[in-house]
Amino acid sequence: MKAPRYWFDGSRPPLHARALARIYGAASRLRLKFVRPRKVSKPVLVIGNLIAGGSGKTPLTIAVVARLQAAGWTPGVASRGYGRDDAGTPRWVEPVTDPKLAGDEPVLVAARTGARVRVDADRVAAAKALIAAGCDIVVCDDGLQHYRLRRDVEIEVIDGVRRYGNGLLIPAGPMRELATRSADVDFRVLNTGSATDVAAEFGEWPMRLETGQALPLVGGRALPLSRFAGQRVHAVAGIGDPERFFATLRSHGIAVVPHAFADHHRYTAEDLRFGSDLPVLMTEKDAVKCMRFAGERHYSVPVSGELPEAFWIALLDRLTKLR
């Protein structure tokens, strides 16, 4: 679903959206009264955001898992697996798992980290399965609003451009919870998209997305993005904010022919037929869903979340005390 313009452009939401937002807020408050958090035997670290749509959770999840592995932990990742078929069936996720069965983001996390990944609508059950499989810490991808699983550390990811939009609850605005919820989290990470230290002044840790080489989906070798500078390419993005990806390519001198799809879009071969024989560059999350019908002109452009070393020191210190 594409976000309504009034979420972020300052215009007034329609009356019906504001009425539904009040109902949504009341239902959320009522639900919280009946939730009884369940504790598991190992630490739980939750990564999420307060708005609907993407904000950079997956790059941060991958970065956190990699840093935990380097520090001697054995992390496992629990996810609902948004948009997958047969959502009621728990499943172990491998890099070769069909995204239709596991969700695009869990497959990407499994491929990038090599960690155990479990998708389950019941996060408590997913956490217990990961612990039984030998994991000594559970990382929940997109789990801030899943209160049944008791968490030890919470990290909120904030989009550095859109932030909280108009600050209103769904569907009048992008908020899953009110912005006051941010005061309760342990770490706030601002996805700036580029290097900056401004966020730290406001209690937010800046995260920049470092772009890697373009990886061919079929054969061939990795190419630096500079190889595409000065030429036109088809750019494909089915993420929360496609324009962020297009802007990244333009910053490398690439002439972008943009093709924006809805977040978590399920691709078919027809979606990638653009009528011209140009290279096609897409995000990693899109690439895992296009492998079956990709051609030699199709490339994935990976990104890595880079944060100040002080952030990692603070996070690992907090987790070491839990250990």
Rank of each mutant, 00 (worst) to 15 (best):
I47M: 01
V301Y: 05
P14E: 02
L45T: 01
V124Y: 13
T192G: 11
L215W: 15
L108A: 03
T268K: 06
R232F: 01
R91T: 02
A195L: 11
V77Y: 12
S300Y: 13
S304C: 12
P174E: 06
D159G: 00
R80W: 01
G25K: 02
E309K: 15
H234A: 07
T89Y: 02
T192W: 05
R163T: 04
G54D: 09
D136F: 09
V93D: 14
V139R: 05
Y147G: 08
T211V: 15
F187V: 07
M291T: 04
I62S: 10
Y24L: 01
P13D: 10
G295Y: 06
G238T: 10
L60H: 15
L178W: 00
V198H: 02
A87K: 14
R266D: 13
L278C: 09
G54S: 02
T268A: 14
R318T: 00
G143H: 15
A66G: 01
G240C: 15
I131F: 15
L209K: 11
W7D: 00
A129L: 10
L20Y: 03
P13C: 09
S194D: 14
R148Q: 12
L149C: 07
H252S: 04
A229N: 07
G230N: 03
D136V: 10
D241R: 08
Y299H: 14
A17P: 08
D98C: 09
A200K: 14
V161P: 14
R18G: 04
T113W: 10
R208M: 13
D9V: 07
A172T: 03
V257A: 07
A262K: 14
A262Q: 06
P174G: 15
R323S: 14
R84N: 14
A237M: 01
G253I: 06
H252E: 12
V46P: 04
E284R: 07
V35K: 04
G193I: 12
L215F: 05
P99W: 11
L217G: 10
F246R: 10
P308C: 06
G238L: 08
G88L: 05
I51P: 01
R38E: 05
L217S: 02
E210L: 08
R273G: 13
G305P: 15
